[in-house]
Amino acid sequence: MLTNDQLRETMIASAGEDESINLDDEFATRPFTELGFDSLALLETCANLKRSYGIEVPDELLWEFSTPEELVRWVNGTES
């Protein structure tokens, strides 16, 4: 199970302290690219999801998800 808040924390950690990202309440429905997440930052997010929650997202699937919501839905659908 992955919640939006857990993904948000992971995304903030992935962006790093010296980067500025603004993940507001609507972040889950906004495209990753609009949030400043390119393929490299998404790979970093997935590496951190694995570290923190043991969740594995195959690299080749990453670009299938346009928004955080879609990624969360995939994780929860796969695990349930």
Partner: peptide
């Protein structure tokens, strides 16, 4: 793509909404 837009969107000026960033094409 939007490789430079994503970099720009992580800068304080764009993240805070002082500056904005638009892309002419889809991310991929």
């Amino acid at each position: 793509g939007q490789s430079l837009s994503t970099l720009a969107r992580r800068t304080p000026a764009v993240a805070r909404g002082e500056s904005r960033c638009l892309a002419a094409l889809p991310p991929r």
